[in-house]
Computed example of a mutant assay.
Amino acid sequence: MSLLLDAELLEYIREDMPYFDLTTTMLGEDFDDAILEIRTREETVVACSEEAARIAELLGCEVEFFVPSSNRVKAQEAILRIKAKGEILHRAWKLTQVLLEYACGMATYANDMLLNVQKVNRHCEILVTRKSIPFAKKFAVRALLCGGVLPHRLGLSESILIFSHHRSLFKDTDAFKDAFKRLKPKAVEKKIVVECEDIQDAKEMLMLGADVIQMDKCALDIFSDLVGYRQTHFPDAKITAAGGINKDNAAEFAKTGVDAIITSSPYQAKMADLSAKWIKI
């Protein structure tokens, strides 16, 4: 079932076709019925196929089948097959294919990254930041969920994450610690995450009561040392790694024993290599 609303899908359609398809209108309306298949040229994790199918339906196509999201398909397999008069199929063609190219690209990258990490640390999660392309968050989150990963933060309203610039605005370290102690009992249903850049600061934040330490742009040995310290002194706390982590280097960070890797890299994934096959009936 589509998780993007019909109203959102209709707005997407209107962006591409605000009035009508000029090409097919000028050519005439005597096209034969046809079938359109969207296929992949490479192994791909399917994402947003429900939305693509719904777009086709909204444009008047008959959906013969689609591969449900989150399934991995092999090269040359069809993801979506729709049927209609040729004029209608042309309206649906690029709208469905481009949506699938972006969504499957992100989902495949995210899933590949997750599989790389879980080969060395099956308890490590991939969490994707809120740094999505502006105006595309809901679509991107949907695609990444299809890839098997989770959002780090969906927005500022849902989690407590204290950065160094928050701490720098206090008069001094003692003033920040006092504020943290007042915050801790108020955060009954929320964990408090503190970002640190060195191991000594991380240890101090754990002693202060941080639930999660987010280490940014640190060397691998620092993560290994901090994970060991956590296991001995604060076994209920979590350690996450952030900063410059992508599909190629994620496994190295996972090997250190961190609980999660925080990344923005799936947003820059290349589009899935899809093609269209036209079959005249």
Rank of each mutant, 00 (worst) to 15 (best):
M1T: 12
A7E: 15
A7W: 06
E8H: 15
Y12Q: 12
I13F: 15
E15Y: 15
D16W: 13
F20C: 09
D21Y: 05
D21L: 02
L22G: 06
T23L: 10
M26S: 09
M26A: 12
L27H: 11
F31N: 02
F31A: 12
D32P: 11
D33A: 12
L36I: 13
I38V: 15
I38F: 08
R41T: 07
A47D: 12
C48V: 14
E51C: 09
A53M: 05
G60L: 14
S69P: 02
R72V: 14
K74Y: 12
Q76I: 10
E77T: 13
A78K: 08
I79D: 00
L80Y: 15
R81Q: 09
I88M: 09
A92I: 13
W93P: 11
K94D: 10
K94P: 00
Q97L: 05
L99A: 13
E101I: 04
Y102Q: 14
C104V: 06
C104A: 06
T108Y: 05
A110G: 05
A110P: 02
N111L: 05
M113V: 07
L114F: 04
V117G: 01
N121T: 00
H123V: 01
L127N: 02
I133D: 06
P134R: 08
A136F: 14
F139H: 08
A143H: 04
G147C: 08
L150Y: 14
H152Q: 10
R153C: 04
L154Q: 11
L156E: 01
S157Y: 12
S159V: 07
I160G: 05
F163M: 05
R167E: 04
L169D: 06
L169F: 14
D172L: 11
D172P: 10
T173Q: 10
D174K: 13
D174C: 03
F180T: 03
F180Q: 02
K181R: 14
K181S: 15
R182M: 11
K184E: 07
A187H: 07
E189M: 11
V193T: 12
V194Q: 01
E195Y: 00
C196E: 03
C196H: 00
E197A: 01
D198T: 07
K203E: 10
E204S: 15
M207E: 15
M207P: 11
D211P: 01
V212M: 00
M215V: 00
A219E: 13
L220K: 03
L220W: 02
I222E: 01
F223K: 00
S224C: 08
L226G: 01
G228R: 15
Q231N: 14
H233R: 13
F234R: 06
A237T: 13
K238W: 02
I239S: 00
A241E: 00
A242G: 02
N249Y: 00
E252A: 05
G257D: 07
A260P: 01
I261S: 00
S264K: 03
S265F: 02
A272N: 07
A272W: 11
S275H: 06
A276E: 10
A276T: 14
I279F: 09
I281F: 03
I281Q: 10
